[in-house]
Design a protein around this nucleic acid. Structure first.
Lengths: 145, 145
DNA sequence: TATTTAGTCTATAGTTTATATAGGTTTTAT
DNA sequence: ATAAAACCTATATAAACTATAGACTAAATA
């Protein structure tokens, strides 16, 4: 399962995507709309900002906003940023590979083979779907405030 | 990622499967062969026993053994037993469903839809592959001791 | 330009869950 | 009886999660 952090990040990013090009969005607005602890959300958005995914503006009229169009932000990228590996085992991770300490030879490990396939199947979806693809369907988004 | 517990369980079960019909296998043998802390492994095997997946025999000549043929133990079952949900989000889990607290309506949540597909893709593999399918390839298994 | 206000940024602390260890108890075979 | 093995309970350690307090920054306005 994805961590709470990543789950919240998804919902927050969806909210930001739905309000793209409408100027900075308040943390408090996202927190209220998505039912997330405002302070925890604060940390998450900051992490996303430091990773280059979000921009922010301080002071009155400030808030957070996407730095790229939603279409260009793959779901896989969000998961990797906050949760790390998408694979079920370290030894089949593309981006966070670690040698398996429990088997003598990965090349003949049957587990390795199956888990690689699971990873590929997941990645096929998560790499090709973007924030734009997961926006709330059939719902007009009013500007709050 | 799968928890350490589940990762260790997989390797232990593979070991047991490779020695099926050879009588009880010592915890210490598995621990040494798979490089797992013997005490942690003890807890894991006990949990698998209490869940009905393993049998055990106490005392001299004792150990653990599979209660069913490896072919009949699906990988998904092992994961669910120790790690819980296979899905990435609680709201798309088949066996551990929880309502999403962060979105107003699951029916129109785009995240829900994509994550359901990821779940299905993973399950297709994990439900259909068994312990038998992940045994070490091309390796004759000698009886130790 | 001083002040107020709205907001981000930083640090930290408490709580829970995951991982691991230690020691003692019970059962079984010989 | 003795030794070997699983079993049980308690505890220690580390990581993840949640929450809180206060510092800092930018904008608005008088």
């Amino acid at each position: 399962m994805l961590s709470k952090k990543t789950q919240y990040a998804f919902h927050a990013l969806i909210h930001l995507a739905e309000r793209a090009d409408q100027g900075p969005v308040l943390i408090s607005e996202i927190a209220q709309e998505k039912n997330i602890s405002i302070k925890f959300l604060e940390n998450i958005l900051l992490e996303l900002k430091n990773a280059g995914m979000l921009g922010s503006k301080k002071g009155k009229g400030g808030g957070y906003y996407l730095l790229k169009p939603p279409k260009e932000i793959a779901l896989a990228k969000i998961i990797r940023l906050l949760d790390g590996p998408i694979a079920l085992l370290p030894c089949v991770s593309l981006n966070y590979y670690e040698r398996c300490e429990n088997c003598r030879d990965e090349a003949v490990c049957g587990l390795h083979e199956v888990m690689s396939k699971v990873r590929d199947a997941s990645l096929k979806l998560l790499e090709n779907k973007s924030l734009k693809d997961i926006l709330t369907k059939n719902v007009p988004i009013p500007k709050l405030g």
